[in-house]
Nucleic acid binder design. Structure first.
Lengths: 338, 338
DNA sequence: GGCGGGCATGTAACCGATTACATGCTCAAC
DNA sequence: GTTGAGCATGTAATCGGTTACATGCCCGCC
């Protein structure tokens, strides 16, 4: 390992000068600067990150704690985060935790001291406990957390609004039996989408039967199985709102296998607008959330906290969720542009 | 920030003892151990990662350098990597590079000293140059790289075999005009899949016309546009092999908009078997690659290198790619199980 | 009773950077 | 010619751990 001392010796200067050259300090003559640069390159020197962060107390790292890594949602999210972080010279440490309190605590523990800030997505209520144990000096941005958590910045998606809009759309199309495939129990996003669903039904004067709410867990497989059940129900719902796109995709597949046509026999809507939603057959009516933007905003906010300390007022930002009408619910003449 | 010294003082022992307690050294009396533990917990002590890795020369971090982060492929890959790493107490640093040599170099630079090893996926030929500049002491596992690179372990997918199998399958079904939607130019996986395609055609005595090979870039949008072109071609291909599933999904969507039925008017096959492939309509005939396993294997190999030094023989591992016949090409009576 | 082995614990060097402060030089102003 | 400002550079403390080696104690054995 070639260290700053090796470079200093070879360039016949002190370590301080080498350090100054690498950090762009102005007080170095051009000739010295050039000499140090040349030697450093020749020796293949690159500063030891651990040593540097030990003395500067900065790591240039951001921790990203996710409940899961399954599906297109998370790659989009990470993409937005990485892009923003990279632009500002930060790198990201990704850890997934399955939303279990213990695992979250472990992951946070393993990230401590390696990052200057944390983006935590833990939609389970109560899952933020381990976050509170963090020293107050670590900036944190919460993603899709249940309700504003006092003392933390947070960004969330307007889940209830989006869900209300889709279900209203469905009701407006004349549907009276509208089922929902829920997300995981104890998941904030799922709960909010369910709330929007119920509100829209109430608005429309519809009382959902008990069989109209079926369980799921945000995976395509769970949507498939849920829809299989719905297809056998009597009376059958004429429309289904799946709490995310992955489940909607599974549901469409199951309905089709059961011999039903979409949207003629059953309308299906999703949530998220993952890239592939528009390429389904029929193209999926869903709620658009700019997932990578969600990641980008969270990162920008976090970097702001990291740079300016935590003095600012904590805010909760709500990302709009807008209805995208395609063809899986009917009610749309033209083809959605790709 | 509470440091080891604070704990030592409060527990009335030396820093060495505190360190020993935290590292599970056996030479500490139970009473001391308990006292130190209690104090550490009360003070909320957690060792500074930078300081620790400065003196141990270990970081417990693995760098993951990816060409991109778009689509389900990457979340699956990261999932496999994270799972294996976490089990062994490592955490991962993810960076994407868009496959540009300069960005790769920058990313590697920013990872240096923060990780004990690197998983690099850079399918562009020549993209590994920056990797060679790494000090030989950093273990590296290459993913889907062009050909075995001397001096490095690598894991790749049997791209050509898989592609040959699908195209053979298509030819076996009686298709004579089989088009391909290519992956990005200068991408190894794409090139290999193209090679398999050509070999299978040659085997079947088919000479592809120039219009049968169209460009794409592995995104669903590019598959959509490519298929739009194919749909207008005369004579039209009766089968299309898309070099990955995302493009196959886009292609199916485009063909359908052009009024063609799948598989009756045109058969479509993909590559990767992303989770959602089986839920498409019709379920996609594709080539199964266990993506998260690919990540898991790469990680296991890397951890092995990290633990045992680099003395072992470098190996290239080839992950099988097996044909999964569903319905998008016909030739399959039953419904694919989900 | 003295000696030595083994064990718990402490002292201090070290890892590789950053940076406050010290040093010494040049040059302009008086 | 002296003085001091301003700048380039060096010296050494520091960040928070780990660990080789030193120390001192207890205990068993001859």
């Amino acid at each position: 390992m070639v260290t700053i001392k090796d470079v200093a010796r070879a360039a016949r200067v002190s370590v301080a000068t080498v350090s100054r050259v690498h950090n762009g300090s102005p007080n170095v003559t051009d000739s010295t600067r050039r000499r140090v640069r040349a030697v450093a390159t020749k020796l293949g020197y690159s500063p030891n990150a651990a040593a540097r962060s030990l003395s500067t107390r900065k790591t240039l790292g951001l921790g990203v704690l996710l409940p899961d890594l399954y599906g297109e949602f998370y790659s989009e999210l990470i993409r937005g985060i990485d892009q923003t972080a990279q632009q500002r010279g930060f790198h990201i440490l990704v850890a997934s935790s399955h939303n279990a309190k213990q695992e979250i605590a472990a992951a946070i523990q393993s990230l401590r001291g390696r990052v200057d800030g944390l983006i935590v997505m833990a939609p389970a209520p109560g899952a933020h406990r381990p976050v509170r144990d963090l020293p107050a000096s670590v900036p944190v941005v919460l993603l899709n957390c249940p309700a504003p958590v006092a003392g933390y910045d947070s960004i969330a998606v307007a889940n209830a609004d989006g869900a209300r809009d889709v279900v209203r759309h469905l009701a407006g199309l004349g549907h009276r039996r509208i089922a929902i495939i829920h997300g995981p129990p104890r998941n904030h996003d799922a709960a909010e989408r369910a709330r929007g669903y119920r509100e829209a039904l109430a608005e429309a004067g519809i009382t959902p039967g008990p069989a109209d709410e079926v369980a799921g867990d945000f995976t395509d497989g769970s949507g498939y199985r849920a829809a299989l059940g719905l297809a056998r129900a009597a009376p059958r719902p004429t429309a289904v709102f799946a709490a995310n796109d992955a489940m909607a995709i599974g549901a469409v597949s199951a309905f089709r296998e059961a011999g039903m046509r979409i949207p003629e026999d059953v309308a299906v809507a999703g949530f998220d607008d993952i890239p592939m939603a528009r390429y389904m057959h029929p193209p999926l009516t869903t709620v658009r959330v700019d997932i990578s933007d969600l990641g980008a905003r969270a990162t920008a906010r976090l970097l702001d906290l990291v740079a300016n300390g935590k003095q600012r007022q904590k805010r909760r930002e709500l990302l709009p969720a807008v209805l995208v009408v395609r063809e899986s619910c009917g009610g749309h003449g033209r083809t959605a542009a790709p």
